[in-house]
Amino acid sequence: MWLYAETAVLLLLLYGITIHALVDPLTAVASSLTVAGVSLLYKPIYCQFRECCDPKWLHTTAPNLRHSLETNVFGQHLAIDTVVKSINSHFKSKPSKALALSFQGWTGTGKNLVARLIAESLYENKAESGFVHWFSATKHFSRPEKKRYYQDQIRDWIEGNLTLCPNQLFIFDEIEKMPEGVLDTLKPFVDFTVPVRGVEYRKAIYILLGNAGSKYLFDKTYQHFRSGGKRQDLRLRDTEATLWKESYYEQGGLRNSSLIKSHLISAHIPFLPLERSHVISCIHNEINSKNYSVSSHLTEITNQVLAELTFTPANELIYSTTGCKRVYEKVNLVIEDYAEE
């Protein structure tokens, strides 16, 4: 009987820490560490009910990642191929360092979606996993005068979580809006090549989402199109060097960053501007995901949504200026007219 009582106490304690983490996530690690030793004693029981650093909850391979990306992300052959190869390579053998990926391009081109699909492929609890940490510049790092405070908070958060489990995913969104220098806090964590005081740093993944190089990517893609080249013929080597420079010199979190200077970012991944055909795929995908029975009106709905979006250049209207970002809300609005019929 004592075993059930002890287990109940442990679960209640851990439940309390989870609630505390939801209220104040940047100070929850210390509380988690307090019960880490206790939880180890009951790990077989605890891990049956709650997410923990255990193969039941962690996926060290991502066999379905490519299919998931190709099914949900459109017009981004470079991003899909590079992401899949980078993730698979990171887990195939013992990594020499943490994996750091920079997603760069216009808004609405799929950066956030790809990051979420990576999380879903690596954790049983998908993007809601406690091992997935999503930071927004406008929400968490909006005041330049608090740069030192932000650096301390990021350092403590990463260190604390990696102490609990090495298989963590850290995502930093809107990095172009972050105070310069904040992301330099990541350098020692990405650069570690051996465990330090028993903490394994090399299994972690860091994903940086930003728009550095967006204009360059538009010009590059458009010039390639105008010269008669096929979009699929563009290669990572065609863009990576310039994206490296754009990240380093453009205003934002990576400007003059030691991550760039030390070549610690594993890949600068381009998200190309989306053409009309890609936006149409987004529209159809959204309709299918909601199980709307509007097949007889599909063409009409698609054209109505397209009419609500803006395309560029003005004389050719090839690329959506907001990618697929506004597609989802527009589809829902247009669908309402047909749902009422």
Rank of each mutant, 00 (worst) to 15 (best):
C52L: 07
S258M: 10
V38M: 14
G108K: 04
F103T: 03
G110H: 06
C47A: 14
V29F: 13
L217R: 04
V334F: 08
H268K: 09
N291E: 11
Q153Y: 09
G37F: 03
H20G: 12
S136L: 05
S121W: 04
H59P: 07
T7D: 12
N72K: 14
D24I: 01
V199M: 09
E286V: 11
I318Y: 08
S142K: 08
K203Q: 13
K139I: 00
C165S: 03
E308A: 13
L333M: 13
N112H: 10
T185C: 05
F271D: 00
W57F: 09
V199N: 10
A79T: 03
P188T: 01
P313F: 07
G130I: 12
N161C: 03
H268F: 15
D54R: 08
I158H: 08
S257V: 05
S281N: 14
S214F: 07
S89A: 11
G37V: 03
P55E: 08
L65F: 06
L41Q: 14
E340R: 14
F218A: 07
F189M: 05
L10C: 10
P313K: 08
G105V: 00
L317W: 00
L333N: 15
K43P: 00
T71W: 10
L117H: 02
S289D: 13
E180W: 05
A267T: 11
T193M: 10
M178P: 06
Y4P: 08
I260Y: 03
S68I: 07
Q251C: 12
S32N: 15
S129L: 06
F141A: 03
V38I: 14
S89H: 14
F170Y: 07
D81F: 04
E174N: 03
V190S: 00
R155D: 12
E174M: 02
Y15T: 11
L99T: 04
I280T: 05
S277P: 09
E128W: 04
S277H: 13
T60K: 15
Y338W: 06
G198D: 10
W106Q: 11
Q153W: 10
Q151E: 06
Y292W: 11
Y149H: 06
V114L: 03
I283W: 01
A28F: 06
L11W: 07
K177D: 15
E70P: 06
D238P: 03
T185L: 05
T185I: 04
W157R: 12
I283N: 02
L208E: 03
S214M: 13
Y150S: 04
S296E: 12
S142D: 09
K94I: 07
A307P: 10
F103R: 04
S96Q: 13
K92S: 11
D81R: 07
H20Y: 14
K245L: 14
Q168I: 05
L65D: 01
A28M: 08
H278E: 15
W106E: 06
I80W: 00
G75S: 05
T18Y: 14
I205A: 02
Y222A: 08
S32T: 14
